[in-house]
């Protein structure tokens, strides 16, 4: 057999070979022992990592599906959807609605099955059923990611002062108690806001933090004088669907309802025979009489004539057209 230049690489002695094999075993066992030492922190890091990734995916889902109603930062949108990055939401909400499970289960339940009620609610939109098992668009694992994301607000939300808490206490039947300590800074501001909101919503026998609120009777309401149209636009939840800052054009249409930015220019041309003021007035008191093409009848509240006085509706029409 011919000699080759690399022949010196061949190990001949069986003892040296066995020694090399032993070294390989020791190296393998050494590395496995090293892993054994690292397993505990590694598993912890992996657990945290997948929770973190779950939050990342949840954040993406939230931005695409939820932020339009619940706000980009989960601060809620007045009259549209409640705040989620809220101390009240994480500390008191479950008690108030009488839910016996945990916070994450409550969020998961709401996401899966939605909130199928339009009765006695201050919110313009219903919470849809997001879970695919109820005909919604999201799979169970996606809802789990969203729950992780919303739960990630817990720490910052619980650190909020009452004043910072974006939760709006108005008509919500059971939240009659402010869950805050009166000695906390910001308690008074929150109390004032809650009382003002309850009064604006016209609820009766409402007790917030020991302050009794009586529903203004029809006479009292008249005595109190007409409410400000700009304020009514918010408290009547118009703002939830109608955007005042955007023009309604073929390229830029409001999603649920027409934008009102250019209402003054277009209102007079909508229905033949109706001038701008008549059209807007009719649209408030009898929304279904004329539906702009592309929108659904019955979406807008039908009883504004009962909720607002004649004078207030006239003021609203005037304010809308003068903007």
């Amino acid at each position: 057999m011919q000699k080759r230049w690399y022949d010196f690489l061949y190990v001949k002695s069986p003892i040296v070979k066995i020694g090399l094999g032993t070294l390989a075993i020791l190296l393998t066992l050494g590395v496995i022992a090293l892993q054994l030492l690292m397993e505990e922190p590694r598993m912890e890091a992996q657990t945290a990592s997948w929770e973190g990734r779950s939050i990342e995916i949840g954040a993406d889902l939230f931005a695409n599906n939820c932020a339009s109603c619940h706000g980009i930062e989960g601060k809620g949108l007045q009259g549209v959807a409640p705040a989620l990055d809220s101390r009240y939401f994480f500390s008191q909400r479950l008690n108030d609605v009488g839910f016996t499970g945990t916070q994450d289960q409550y969020i998961a339940l709401t996401l899966h099955a939605g909130r199928p009620s339009k009765v006695d609610t201050q919110w313009a939109n219903v919470m849809a059923t997001w879970g695919s098992e109820f005909g919604g668009p999201l799979r169970a694992d996606q809802i789990d990611h969203l729950v992780s994301f919303v739960m990630n607000w817990e720490e910052t939300a619980l650190a909020q002062t009452p004043e910072e808490d974006p939760w709006q206490f108005f008509q919500d039947a059971l939240s009659k108690q402010l869950p805050y300590d009166p000695s906390e800074p910001g308690y008074q501001t929150k109390l004032d806001q809650a009382v003002a909101a309850a009064e604006a919503a016209g609820v009766s026998n409402y007790s917030i933090g020991g302050v009794e609120v009586q529903a203004p009777t029809a006479d009292e309401a008249a005595d109190a004088g007409p409410r400000d149209p700009e304020e009514l636009f918010t408290t009547m939840a118009c703002i939830g669907c109608h955007n005042l800052d955007q023009d309604q054009t073929p390229d830029n249409r409001g999603i649920t309802a027409p934008n009102l930015g250019n209402l003054a220019e277009v209102a007079g041309d909508m229905v033949p025979g109706q001038d701008a003021a008549t059209y807007v007035y009719n649209s408030i008191v009898a929304p279904n009489d004329y539906i702009v093409e592309g929108y659904l009848p019955g979406v807008m509240t039908q009883n504004f004539a009962e909720q607002m006085s004649e004078e207030e509706i006239q003021a609203m029409v005037e304010w809308l057209l003068s903007r």
């Binding site: 070979k17 066995i18 090399l20 094999g21 390989a24 075993i25 190296l27 393998t28 090293l34 892993q35």
Partner: peptide, 20 residues
């Protein structure tokens, strides 16, 4: 037998180190 065993042990060590 010694050659093959040592070779496979070395290969195992390589795989363990690489995947670690």
């Amino acid at each position: 037998l010694i050659d093959e065993t040592v070779f496979l042990l070395a290969f195992t060590a390589f795989t363990v180190v690489a995947s670690t």
